[in-house]
Amino acid sequence: MKKLNYKQISMLLYGIALFTPMFFGNWTIGVFGLIMGWLGIFALEPFVAIPWIANFLYFGNLIFNKLNLKTKIGLSILTIICALFVIGLRELPENEGGRNSDIVVGIGFIIWLSSFVILLIGQLREKK
C-alpha cells in the first residue's frame, strides 16, 4: 500500500472536515460554511469572513507549486492565523426569524485546522 505524503493527508483531513459539524450548538457541516462564508464579507463580520479567506490561502498554497518554500511556509502560517479567527464567533443565525443559537467550535473546526497544521509541518520538514 502506498504511503500518503503530507499534502495528501492534509487534503484528506480537509475533505473530512467538510462533512463534520463545524460547531457545537448548531450542527452545521463544514461544506455549508464554505459555501456561505462569503456572506461574512458583506455583513462586515470578521469572525466569518477572515476564516473563509483561509480556504483560498490553503488552496493557493496547494496549487501554486512554483512558489518557493519560504513563501509556502508563510502562506501556511497566515492560513492558520486566519482560521483561528473563527474562535471569536459566538452565535449563528438559526432561522430567518432572527433567532440565533449560541455556538463553540466543534470537531469539524479541529479537523479543518489540523489540515492546515499538517501542511505546515510537512513544509517545515521539507525545508530541512
Rank of each mutant, 00 (worst) to 15 (best):
1 M>Q: 04
5 N>F: 02
8 Q>F: 03
9 I>W: 01
11 M>G: 11
11 M>R: 02
12 L>H: 01
13 L>Q: 05
14 Y>S: 12
14 Y>R: 04
14 Y>E: 07
16 I>W: 09
17 A>C: 09
18 L>C: 13
19 F>H: 03
20 T>L: 13
21 P>Q: 14
23 F>T: 11
26 N>L: 12
27 W>I: 06
27 W>M: 14
28 T>W: 00
29 I>Y: 00
30 G>K: 01
30 G>S: 02
30 G>W: 01
31 V>E: 12
31 V>W: 13
32 F>P: 01
33 G>H: 08
36 M>Q: 09
38 W>L: 09
38 W>P: 07
40 G>K: 12
44 L>N: 08
46 P>A: 04
46 P>N: 11
47 F>C: 01
47 F>P: 00
48 V>E: 08
49 A>T: 00
49 A>E: 10
50 I>H: 10
50 I>F: 13
51 P>S: 07
51 P>M: 11
51 P>F: 12
51 P>Y: 13
52 W>N: 08
52 W>M: 03
53 I>F: 15
56 F>N: 05
56 F>L: 14
57 L>C: 08
60 G>Y: 06
60 G>E: 09
60 G>L: 08
62 L>H: 11
63 I>H: 03
63 I>W: 10
64 F>R: 04
64 F>L: 15
65 N>L: 11
65 N>Y: 00
65 N>M: 00
68 N>C: 06
69 L>C: 04
69 L>P: 14
69 L>K: 12
71 T>S: 12
73 I>W: 03
74 G>S: 10
75 L>K: 03
77 I>C: 06
77 I>N: 02
78 L>H: 14
78 L>E: 04
80 I>A: 00
80 I>K: 02
82 C>T: 07
82 C>K: 14
83 A>V: 14
85 F>Q: 09
85 F>N: 11
87 I>W: 04
88 G>I: 15
89 L>G: 01
89 L>P: 08
90 R>I: 12
92 L>K: 08
92 L>V: 13
94 E>H: 08
95 N>Q: 00
97 G>M: 06
101 S>I: 07
101 S>C: 05
101 S>F: 15
102 D>A: 04
104 V>T: 13
106 G>I: 11
106 G>C: 10
107 I>A: 05
108 G>A: 05
109 F>S: 00
110 I>N: 02
112 W>R: 12
113 L>W: 05
115 S>F: 03
115 S>L: 01
116 F>T: 07
116 F>G: 12
117 V>F: 08
119 L>T: 14
120 L>G: 00
120 L>C: 05
122 G>S: 02
123 Q>T: 03
125 R>K: 13
126 E>W: 03
126 E>C: 10
128 K>L: 07
